[in-house]
């Protein structure tokens, strides 16, 4: 998992404030990139948010949700498993009014790359 991959996704969209790659099973932030430096507890809170929302089960075929979008006053978070049922997930924090329509397919594309066998060997 290259940090450059996350940085490339963030810098591609002006409204993307930070990108995290997390392990939901161990609630660990594996890598992240952002314009603003954040204390570890803040990153842990985002990881916890991903674990809690993507862990909501019983509403689809899989054990949890594939994707969750949380929007609030100061922006929105997109949380997405790299593959159905996978323990790894991408989390993007976006500013209000972000072009979510453009970011969602880009995140899906990156998730496919991250869940591929080549990526697993690199991790």
């Amino acid at each position: 998992m290259a940090f450059d991959t996350l940085a490339a996704l963030r810098t591609e969209f002006d409204s993307c404030e930070r990108v995290l790659f997390v392990d939901l099973s161990t609630r660990t932030v594996l890598a992240w990139d952002g314009a603003v430096k954040l204390p570890q507890e803040r990153l842990d809170a985002l990881c916890h948010l991903a674990t809690a929302t993507l862990g909501i089960g019983g509403i689809g075929a899989g054990p949890g949700c594939q994707q969750a979008v949380v929007a609030g006053a100061t922006g929105c978070h997109i949380l997405r498993r790299v593959a159905p049922g996978a323990d790894e997930a991408l989390c993007c924090t976006l500013a209000p009014g972000a072009a979510v329509g453009a970011i969602l397919p880009r995140m899906a594309q990156l998730c496919e790359t991250l869940s591929g066998p080549a990526s697993r060997r690199q991790a």
Binding site: A45, L49, I59, A61, G62, Q67, G72, G85
Partner: peptide, 30 residues
């Protein structure tokens, strides 16, 4: 089905329990 899980979501800057928010869950195949 989801209410018990929603009630236990963390209260924090990303998901303020008291604030106005929109949560969209995308389950697989539903």
């Amino acid at each position: 089905t989801v209410l018990p899980d929603l009630d236990t979501l963390p209260d924090g800057p990303g998901l303020p329990r008291a604030g106005d928010r929109l949560l969209i869950l995308s389950p697989e195949g539903a």
